[in-house]
């Protein structure tokens, strides 16, 4: 079932329609744990983006080689390989930031979002759509992490990307780790609310101008 997928379609699908965190609610561990500042969120988001794109491409290329019955173990091996690669590269070249997210980078292996994309999309599609699907999902994940990180860093420490916005900590509570849950819960509700309004608006437009 190789359908017609455009680049734009894949990107918006990953960022809005099937946003891994706000809509699919998959792989939320890092979204809660490391998002008390944007920098961590961006680093981890980029790592996920890389792993998603690389595994999507690999699986898509090997989709006729991998035996049907061992596809899940094979996917896991492929993901684990790319995760180990990015893990070693980050540890070597950005040691300072890596220290804070080290455990979570290794845990990308078991992120449900990646394997589910391989199973749902990459193993049935050609290289190019798979690549863009990976980019879309990765960017969607990055987008969600940055959103949560932005809200928490601004409210918790009064800074954005380490730059001071207000000279004090407005709501100290938001830097505490449990606030990650609240931030995601609230943003998720916001996402749903905006989407509903948008749909209603579209509906109305259709009715006015049939």
């Amino acid at each position: 079932m190789e359908g017609n997928y455009t680049v734009l379609n894949r990107l918006t699908n990953g960022i809005f329609k099937e946003n891994p965190i706000f809509k699919l609610a998959l792989s939320m561990c890092p979204a809660v744990a490391v998002t008390n500042n944007i920098r961590n969120g961006v680093l981890l988001g980029l790592a996920v983006l890389f792993v998603q794109v690389a595994s999507n491409c690999t699986v898509s290329l090997l989709r006729r080689v991998i035996h049907e019955r061992i596809r899940i173990p094979a996917y896991i091996i492929i993901i684990a390989t790319w995760v180990s690669v990015i893990d070693m590269v980050l540890a070597a070249y950005v040691p300072a930031v890596y220290k804070e997210v080290a455990l979570y980078v290794k845990l990308i292996v078991v992120f449900a979002i990646i394997i589910s994309r391989l199973e749902v999309f990459a193993c049935r599609n050609k290289l190019w759509p798979s690549f863009w699907d990976g980019v879309g999902m990765g960017v969607g994940f990055l987008f969600a992490l940055v959103m949560v990180g932005f809200v928490r860093e601004l409210l918790g420490s009064g800074t954005v990307w380490g730059y001071e916005i207000v000279p004090f900590r407005p709501f100290f509570f938001w830097s505490l780790p449990p606030a990650g849950f609240f931030a995601i819960g609230l943003l998720m509700a916001l996402f749903i609310w905006v989407e509903k309004k948008f749909e209603a608006w579209q509906q109305k437009r259709k009715e006015v101008r049939p």
């Binding site: 505490l176 780790p177 849950f181 609240f182 995601i184 819960g185 609230l186 916001l190 609310w193 509903k196």
Partner: peptide, 18 residues
Amino acid sequence: GPFRGLPIAFVVAGLFAL
């Protein structure tokens, strides 16, 4: 409405975490 399902579950988890 918008909180039904997962969003409220997250808020509850946040309370537990606290």
